[in-house]
Design a binder for these strands. Structure first.
Lengths: 348, 348
DNA sequence: TTGTAGGCGTTATCAC
DNA sequence: GTGATAACGCCTACAA
């Protein structure tokens, strides 16, 4: 074959065999180089390999390596709602850890749809992911159990699923909500409407609810009954419940609490539509801080979850498991941060 | 080997050989089944295979398939800033198309850091991705060129890079900005401060700037000189430029325009700090709508980009290229939507 | 310090 | 309709 004046462009992606041939050594030696086993290579050879690798722009094929080693060096991440800032922040935390350890992330988004979730789990299995971090919809227990039986480490974020006992990383919802509730009581609110999407199957929502009613119960506060569960897709139901609360509390100092960011936004929108001023006519607060929270009215009082850290810790946990950690399941609850702004002024 | 009373848990992930043996056929037949080649299989065999596959919970190993076929069935997505809602919306659009076609996405986030970007590109190459969608930092020209030489289809979103001619999908910044600028002039603003991160290397920012000064130039409007470029990490510089504009325009009807969401937030924060009321003392508007925009003050006038669609189109383009499309590069500019709210009232 | 050989799970080619 | 067999690119005994 005539190789004079070949253009620089390689005819195909270089393989380990190409590098070996070009460097005048065997594939084994190249493989040793790739796995960092430098001490079994003479320095002269090492230099030659380095040059050849960069010259050929060689990139080890992860599929081949994965097939041989029976591990993919990828971690799956399944989010219930990727457009939620909560998710992207978790994603970033997880990614930083993941990349540092030489793993890649396969990411997907279920839109809270159990069927999509099921399909994605199957896809993850086909990829032979080494571990999974999941923000679960709460409806695919069996499949996740199967995965665990196949020895794939799974870490849940934000939520746990009843009857499944895996590693968990999330916010300390109970303490965060307790602290916030005590603060609201201290501000002198006579009525606090607690709005949340359904508790069922979603542990984090339930924990917030629990903490709320316990603090109010201890204080003998009437709002222990001001609990409003609504379906996110049922706007009429939401409006009706809100109107009910507004009517009942009309002559009292009052506020609304939203159990998550979506709810917070819905409440603010609805109040605006009704011409109710925040905080003059009614206070408001809720879970999840946002970069916009400081500039909404006089600023929104919010509970900021340690999302980036949740991502980090979840990924660390998965990697520990992959590394062989067999300790009992852990449930990490990270502290949240109550950020007091102008939307919950004192009524004393 | 004694196989009586084996527990249901499989000793290892089932392979095509396991399925073949259990179904009493050859690996070839199973493979035919997997690739949907049903017409070369007798119906009796077909039924048997189906049963066996679900019984053994068999999932074809993507790494093995990829190795053999020299394609990974994965698309890489590299975002400059995943925490930006723009990115997550694009992500969702891309994902829906991707999944429907049987591909998976490998996602990462460069934080606008060219070094991270470089490393991620290398990772993508190691994964042998079949295509790449990238929101580029603008600093890794050469590497992307190499990738293209290796016949990997690349689609840029939001930005193009000078000197590189690949498929592009983004917003029609020019027309969107023109329309908005004309609207502001119609509202009677005497001074409009245009704030943007540096134009250099970022085509989308430059297009917005161009449209702005052209419309103002044609109208003989003085704000053709009210252009302020600032570095996002240099708060002092930002504040100084803002103060300069505020001082110069003190006795005029005036507004601020932010070339993207981050800038919008910074401006609103800074105005609040200075005690300037929106829109009474000064109007404001900018690129990128947000779910919070309607509830900031009397509502923010924004330019909403068709982000979900950008993701869809970008993924469609990549898949077309993978499918063998050799047509010249295309540059798709999708229409944006000017949403008029209370932050830019008429001053006439 | 270096090399040989075999196999990971799949698909493609060719044969019956 | 069905099957045997040889790769794909890499890693890992085992040898030398």
């Amino acid at each position: 074959m005539d190789t004079t004046n070949q253009p620089p462009k390689p005819p195909h992606k270089a393989t380990i065999a190409d590098v070996a041939k070009a460097a005048g050594v065997s594939k084994t030696t190249i493989s040793r180089y790739l796995s960092g086993d430098y001490k079994s290579i003479s320095s002269a050879t090492l230099i030659r390999i380095k040059e050849t690798v960069s010259e050929l722009r060689y990139r080890p094929n992860r599929m081949a390596r994965g097939l041989r080693q029976d591990r993919s060096y990828s971690i799956g991440m399944i989010f219930a709602d990727i457009s939620n800032p909560y998710s992207t922040s978790v994603l970033r935390g997880a990614e930083d850890v993941c990349t540092n350890q030489g793993y890649s992330m396969i990411v997907c988004n279920t839109d809270n749809d159990p069927i999509k979730e099921k399909n994605y789990i199957a896809m993850m299995q086909a990829h032979r992911i080494d571990g999974l971090i999941i923000h679960p919809t709460g409806h695919n227990k069996e499949i996740l159990e199967e995965m665990a039986e196949d020895q794939i480490p799974i870490v849940f974020i934000d939520r746990t699923i009843q009857g499944l006992s895996y590693d968990t990383v999330g916010t300390d919802n109970y303490n965060a909500m307790s602290e916030a509730a005590r603060f609201f009581l201290g501000q002198g609110y006579e009525r606090i409407g607690f709005f949340s999407q359904p508790f069922q199957n979603v542990s984090s929502r339930y924990e917030r609810y629990q903490a709320f009613i316990e603090v109010l119960g201890e204080a003998g506060h009437p709002s222990i009954n001001d609990i409003y569960e609504f379906e996110i897709r049922n706007q009429d139901q939401f409006e009706a419940k809100l109107d009910q609360f507004l009517a009942e509390s009309a002559d009292k100092s009052r506020m609304l609490f939203a159990a998550n960011a979506v709810t917070q936004l819905k409440l603010i929108n609805a109040l605006q539509k009704r011409g109710l001023r925040i905080p003059d006519d009614i206070g408001i607060s809720g879970f999840d801080d946002s970069e916009w929270a400081p500039v909404i009215g006089a600023g929104l009082t919010t509970i900021e979850q340690p999302t980036y850290e949740i991502g980090q810790k979840a990924m660390e946990r998965v990697l520990e498991r992959i590394g062989g950690d067999k300790s009992p399941e852990s449930h990490l609850a990270l502290s949240a941060n109550l950020i007091i702004r102008g939307s919950t002024p004192s009524r004393n």
